[in-house]
Amino acid sequence: MEDHSKEKQHIVSYKENFGTWLGLMLLTALTVAVSVANASLITLTVVTALVIATTKAILVAYYFMHLKFDHKLYRIMLLIITLLFSSFMLLTIVDYLSR
């Protein structure tokens, strides 16, 4: 990541920002709707909710936080941290599920 500070900064247009917002809104509506409609299918609701939340998170990170236009170093670091945290979660939960 030595020289890209001199690279021209990508300016995200208002339109892209608004589009991202629209996407986030639709996903919010979807996740609420799924939750209200599927009251009996507990696990399914949780999994869907988490998948939708992660999609929203990626949208925010890529467009609002400019990750898409930044050096790929940032994406790699975020990926590694997500994996690291997931392994913490996994290893802890394994203990509880196997007791």
């Binding site: 690291l84 392994s87 913490f88 290893l91 394994v94 203990d95 509880y96 196997s98 007791r99």
Partner: peptide, 18 residues
């Protein structure tokens, strides 16, 4: 080193598989 913390808890009641 991030994934070995459980070895401090071998005698504390963690599950056998863990």
């Amino acid at each position: 080193g991030y994934f070995v913390w459980g070895h401090h808890m071998f005698t504390s009641g963690m599950s056998g598989s863990a």
